[in-house]
């Protein structure tokens, strides 16, 4: 998981990173207190989750978030702020969560466990390096499934097969045939090319 934290004050950023590291020790976390660097860091890092202060340096944090989302729509935007009044407006950007300061560990844990665009445990990096050959397709299926927030049983039901079948595909024991691949792409809401590469 990759997380970007942006707030006016470096100490607030530090504080958030402290808790995020506790909650997700394996995550790549980057923070900034310079609003001008947000877009740059976002492009470099391609984070899955962005924590952003709404009152960013007098600027509109929501507008900044909107621009980020235009670049990568499946980014989870989590707003942090001292005021509740912007809550409704924040939903213009399909925010994943809206946290009102002061923030504590429980709020963060909750927000990370209920991401709008669930983040898979399989990263693109892993797809490139670890999974090779036929098992790549399995890994991709698993990744897309996790990003849809579906369990294997749930996916099996939607496809019209049994859970062990999904399991075999994902572990690379079997490869789905073409009609099944098309069904998978349909159910998981991805292009076929994302599954077969």
């Amino acid at each position: 998981m990759k997380i970007l934290v942006a707030d006016d004050h470096q100490l607030v950023v530090d504080d958030l990173i402290y808790y995020l590291k506790k909650l997700r020790p394996d995550a790549e976390i980057v923070g900034t207190s310079e609003p001008d660097r947000i877009a740059e860091l976002f492009d470099e890092m391609k984070p899955d989750v962005v924590f952003i202060d709404i009152e960013l340096d007098g600027r509109n944090g929501i507008a900044v978030a909107k621009k980020l989302q235009e670049k990568r729509p499946r980014t989870n935007i989590i707003y942090i702020t001292g005021y509740e009044k912007y809550a409704l407006e924040s939903y213009k950007t399909y925010a994943s969560a809206f946290l009102v300061k002061p923030i504590d560990e429980d709020m963060l844990r909750d927000a990370l466990e209920h991401l709008r665009f669930p983040v898979s445990s399989i990263t693109d990096e892993m797809l490139r390096k670890q999974y090779l050959g036929d098992s790549v397709i399995g890994a991709r299926i698993q990744k897309c499934r996790e990003e849809c927030g579906l369990t294997r049983a749930e996916l099996a039901e939607k496809i019209g097969c049994v859970m062990p079948t999904i399991q075999r595909w994902e572990t690379g024991v079997r490869v789905p045939d073409i009609p099944m691949i098309m069904k998978l792409a349909n159910v998981l809401g991805v292009e076929i090319s994302e599954l077969i590469g």
């Binding site: 006016d8 004050h9 100490l11 607030v12 530090d14 504080d15 402290y18 009152e55 702020t81 001292g82 005021y83 300061k101 002061p102 923030i103």
Partner: peptide
């Protein structure tokens, strides 16, 4: 409140 919560968070850090 915004100022106050920011200060508290900074102190915490």
């Amino acid at each position: 409140p915004h100022f106050i919560y920011n200060v508290l968070t900074m102190i915490r850090s």
